[in-house]
């Protein structure tokens, strides 16, 4: 059984069909890429999976459980975390707090316990702090723990966003253009990071990318969207030579 099963996912914005009949089976441990020209509906697919929009039609299942109609926060708690195309950190809050907020669904104490700082409250807060520091340590960010997120250099902000996403203990990580704004050197490092993430956290990764070298370098399977339609699906090599893809997307680069 696939970890994530998406079937005939269709979404309209008013009269505009942003995504139509999108199908995806994501198996445990896979790295799958979603590519396509600007405005092809890639981010919309992410927004549909994470419950930002409710799809007009279609089905999304995680481990056989239906996700359509659930609130984003519940979907994330069930195991689908994501990052954003443009960095969306809590800019004024500390790096530590950014990651601790990612742990929101894991601190299970009541409001009353929080208001009177009870024993269980203190113990769980301590655990959340430890886990947050561990994550920061893993991402080499712990020395920034008390700085506001906005003070970090760009690359570190990207890493913090991933650390924050991992705080919710996801099974699947959705990366929305992780290489945006990076130079070739940084992209190489990113590719290493993604491969390492996958092993270290046992993740299944679904990523959107604009730059061909990123998807070609890391994805086992690639889906290509154009005007909301899936025009191709296959291994990087198949995609590279697919005439429809070349026409819609690579064509410009190849010429």
């Amino acid at each position: 059984m696939p970890l994530l099963h998406v079937e005939q996912l269709t979404h309209y914005f008013g009269g505009l069909r942003a995504v139509s009949d999108f199908n995806l089976d994501l198996h445990e441990g896979e790295v799958v890429g979603l590519i396509g020209p600007n405005g092809a509906g890639k981010t919309t697919v992410f927004n549909l999976i994470t419950g930002v929009y409710r799809p007009t039609r279609g089905r999304i299942q995680l481990d056989g459980k239906d996700l359509v109609g659930m609130q984003s926060c519940d979907i994330v708690s069930m195991g689908i975390a994501r990052t954003f195309q443009t960095i969306r950190l809590f800019r004024e809050l500390s790096v530590l707090d950014n990651v601790r907020i990612g742990h929101f669904s894991q601190a299970r104490y009541s409001v009353g316990a929080a208001l009177f700082r009870s024993g269980p409250f203190r113990r769980q807060e301590e655990r959340v702090r430890e886990r947050a520091y561990e994550l920061l340590e893993t991402f080499n960010l712990s020395r920034y723990a008390s700085s506001p997120a906005k003070a970090l250099p760009y690359g570190e902000q990207r890493r913090l966003e991933i650390a924050r996403a991992l705080a919710s203990n996801p099974k699947i990580l959705l990366l929305d253009e992780p290489a945006a704004g990076m130079n070739p050197n940084e992209i190489d490092r990113l590719l290493e990071t993604i491969a390492w993430l996958k092993d270290r956290f046992g993740l299944t990764i679904f990523l959107i990318e604009h730059q061909m070298r990123v998807v070609m370098g890391i994805c086992e399977r690639i889906l290509v969207l154009d005007f909301g339609e899936t025009i191709a699906e296959g291994t990087p090599d198949e995609i590279r030579t697919n005439p429809r893809v070349l026409e819609a997307y690579l064509g410009k680069e190849a010429s």
């Binding site: 969306r88 809590f90 809050l93 707090d97 601790r100 929101f104 669904s105 924050r164």
Partner: peptide, 18 residues
């Protein structure tokens, strides 16, 4: 902290499990 994250970015907050 959840309350603060709503001030900073409500959509992102919801998408990191708040």
């Amino acid at each position: 902290r959840a309350m603060l994250s709503i001030r900073e970015d409500e959509v992102a907050s919801n998408l990191v499990s708040v």
